[in-house]
């Protein structure tokens, strides 16, 4: 393992604890019960919530509570020039699953037995960190849909490039020629509980701890943006 001693600079000149510019908007899709857009740098996620509604196929129904289904999808033109093959893939299936698991702990669907809530998350353009942007958008959309939730969910990717702890990696950093760890984290901002934690690459134990600290700090900032966006929809002018 070689760690270069040269001073690391981020390709787009950001500080190590600086995210890309974030914008968020709620109520972007009229037909849906709840919807939200969350953009961080060049990664944009649009989430739409349909339901609670009658759930089919019927064997999925749970008589004790409603179920949540998430669908992560990158649009064909959303990548870096290479066409993304439309339809589900191994990767999108996994991300749909982790998104669902990241959102379920806050959601209370006990009042909707046998019903289902569908969350569709689409990405018109991506530049790394899409699962985190998707979770942020989806949690806002679920709140907008008026579903009972304990908390919102904020998510961000932290990383470790040659021992430098940075937040919100873009694609250039993820593909950096060196030792890279990419760690997406989702958190409940009010309790600090973690609902998603994955890691690609290698990181020392101490560095991982530092990275998580940074992730926690950033999730608080993202939470503020989410809160403002949700309140903005209903603001009386």
């Amino acid at each position: 393992m070689t760690k270069s001693n040269a001073i690391f600079k981020r390709p787009d000149g950001r500080a190590f604890d600086e995210t890309r510019p974030i914008t968020a908007k709620v109520g972007v899709i009229k037909n849906a019960q709840g919807s939200a857009m969350f953009q961080i740098g060049d990664t944009q996620a649009i989430a739409a919530v349909y339901g609670p509604r009658n759930l089919f196929p019927k064997f999925l129904q749970n008589p004790r509570k409603g179920i949540l289904r998430c669908f992560y999808n990158m649009m064909p033109f959303s990548g870096h020039g290479e066409r993304i093959r439309p339809g589900g893939s191994r990767r999108s299936k996994e991300i749909s699953m982790v998104t669902q698991n990241a959102l379920l702990p806050v959601l209370n669907l006990d009042d909707f037995p046998n019903a289902g809530v569908d969350v569709f998350i689409e990405f018109p353009q991506t530049d790394a960190g899409s699962r985190c942007a998707g979770i942020c958008a989806a949690s806002m959309a679920l709140a907008d849909a008026g579903l009972p939730m304990k908390d919102l969910v904020a998510a961000v990717a932290v990383g470790n490039i040659n021992g430098n702890i940075i937040v919100d990696l873009n694609y250039a950093e993820e593909a950096y020629d060196g030792q890279v760890a990419d760690i997406p984290v989702a958190m409940l901002p009010n309790s600090g509980k973690v609902t998603l934690l994955q890691m690609d690459g290698i990181s020392e134990r101490e560095e991982l701890k530092k990275a998580l600290e940074l992730g926690k700090k950033t999730c608080q900032k993202i939470y503020e943006v989410q809160k403002q966006a949700l309140k903005g929809k209903y603001k009386v002018d």
Binding site: V106, A143, L152, N190, K227, L230, K231, K235
Partner: peptide, 8 residues
């Protein structure tokens, strides 16, 4: 006031 889920 308008409040969001989780807000104290």
């Amino acid at each position: 006031d308008i409040v969001v889920p989780g807000e104290s």
